[in-house]
Design a protein around this nucleic acid. Sequence first.
DNA 1: CGGCATCCGTTCTGATACTG
DNA 2: CAGTATCAGAACGGATGCCG
Lengths: 97, 97
Amino acid sequence: MEGRWKLVIIHNLFGRDGGKPPVMRFSELERAIPTVSQKMLIQQLRCLERDGIVQRTIHPQVPPKVEYQLTCLGEALRPTLRALLDWANIRKQQSSD
Amino acid sequence: MEGRWKLVIIHNLFGRDGGKPPVMRFSELERAIPTVSQKMLIQQLRCLERDGIVQRTIHPQVPPKVEYQLTCLGEALRPTLRALLDWANIRKQQSSD
DNA sequence: CGGCATCCGTTCTGATACTG
DNA sequence: CAGTATCAGAACGGATGCCG
C-alpha cells in the first residue's frame, strides 16, 4: 500500500519552520489537506501509525477527540524531507531556464 | 503513475560509494534488480526519463545497445537518498531494541 | 467528531508471447 | 538485446451511507 499522501501528512505534522511540531486533530489534517479524501487520510494515517512514524492519541470524551503527532522516528525524517524540498528547488530553477 | 521502483533504479545508477556513477545497460539493470519485471523496469525508466532524472542513450548497432545514466537533476537526488538511508539506519537501530 | 463498510469504476501490475 | 502487445487479476481511490 504505497500512498502519495504520506509525505504531505508528515510535512504538515512538521509544522512551519521555526515552530514546534504541532499536534493535530483529524479534522485539522482534513482541512490542511483539502485534496485528500477522508478514506485516504485515515488509511494513510493508520499506515504511518503501524510504521511507527505517527502517534495516535485518543481522548475518551464526547465528542471524540483524536490527535496525531510525529513519533521520534517520524521526526527523524525531517532531514530527508528537507533534502527532497531542496531538490525540488533545484528542479524548479532548471525548468525556468 | 507512482512506482516503488524509481528509488531502487536511481540507487543503482548512483553506484557504489566512492565510485563514479555508472552507465548501465538495460540488461544490467534487470540483473541488478531481479525482483522487477521487465515491463515495470522499462515503464519506470521511461517515466524517469520524461522527468529529466535519467538519460537514455541509444547506440544504433546490432545487437541493440541502450544505456541509462543519471542526469544532473538525477545526481542532485543523492543527498535525498542519503538522508533516507540514514533514516533507515535509525529505524533499524530502534527496532532492534 | 472521527471514523468504518460497501459499492464500483479506474489504474496498476505480472505473465506471457512476440519483434526489429 | 531491448523492447512492444495483450490480457486478466489485484490494488487503488472516490462516493456514499451509517455509527458510537
